[in-house]
């Protein structure tokens, strides 16, 4: 008798554990950045969004996500040896971790800075337009976030507030998003739930030994400094060619988040 009870107990325990374990979803995107070029003609990177009920993790520019080296796409080279598109992937990629339970957002962002901030509140305006992506119906939403006007197509059939990069907070996962002129463009490739294929580890973003979290304010300062460096690069090249160049540029032509413009 006790043995049977024990077996029953274990089976029930097992069963409840199975049920309470949260299922994982995986969305594959293509990410194209073509800042200042007026059309989505930049390098096309593979990106994934892994999520469950607790958090989501968006990874892009990771070596292992690209089967072959970024090939078959012409990087545009100027005579100075610099290029307008820099096609670069790295070992860990850029990672964006949305912890909705803690209302926090952890990123491994540009410059391999580990940035910690409160989940950005984006004032989305949900439009009436819908379209089908794959077999899912998506609805359109628009918002201005950190200097850019975004259009996002979210699927209410996946009722979680996740999306690529830092775009989130809609009543459904964002499957496609772009800004004016598609200079930033995330396009949908596939969605799997629950995930049965092998996934890269879905671990929260943590800085390695010796590196610390920085705040979004510090990150802003670093980005503005990097931008100034890029401006200087342009001026050096103009000097070498003995030509005139434009002296004032806005961050919008080089970075996604336009930190030198105040969001309204």
């Amino acid at each position: 008798m006790p043995l049977k009870a024990l077996l029953l107990f274990l089976t029930i325990l097992n069963f409840t554990i199975c049920i309470s374990q949260t299922e994982r979803g995986l969305i594959r995107y293509g990410e194209i950045q073509s800042l200042s070029l007026g059309a989505p003609i930049g390098v096309d990177y593979n990106a994934i969004l892994m999520f469950d009920n607790n958090s989501s993790l968006y990874i892009t520019r990771k070596d292992s996500l690209e089967k072959t080296k970024i090939d078959g796409q012409k990087s545009v080279i100027t005579a100075q040896g610099g290029s307008i598109f820099t096609a670069v992937t790295n070992e860990k990629g850029f990672q964006y971790n949305n912890l909705i339970k803690k209302d926090s957002f952890y990123s491994r962002d540009l410059g391999f800075n580990y940035v910690k901030e409160k989940t950005p509140k984006i004032s989305w305006k949900i439009e009436k337009e819908t379209k089908t992506i794959g077999q899912l119906t998506c609805q359109k939403a628009t918002a201005t976030f950190r200097g850019r006007d975004y259009t996002a197509w979210f699927a209410p059939e996946i009722p979680l507030p996740y999306g690529p990069w830092k775009l989130q907070g809609l009543p459904g996962v964002i499957l496609e998003a772009y800004d004016t002129n598609k200079e930033i463009f995330w396009y949908f490739k596939s969605f799997e739930y629950p995930v049965t294929t092998m996934l890269p580890s879905f671990k929260p973003v943590t800085p390695p030994k010796g590196k610390d979290w920085i705040s979004i304010e510090t990150f802003k300062e670093i980005q503005i400094k990097n931008f100034k460096n890029a401006q200087i690069a342009g001026k050096m090249v103009a000097e070498k060619m003995n030509i005139e160049t434009y002296s004032n540029d806005t961050m919008k032509n080089s970075y996604i988040e336009v930190f030198d413009v105040e969001d309204k």
């Binding site: 077999q135 596939s190 799997e192 739930y193």
Partner: peptide, 12 residues
């Protein structure tokens, strides 16, 4: 629930 939809393969 099984929601799976594929428009492009991972490397396409």
């Amino acid at each position: 629930e099984t929601l799976t939809t594929v428009v492009l393969k991972a490397d396409e």
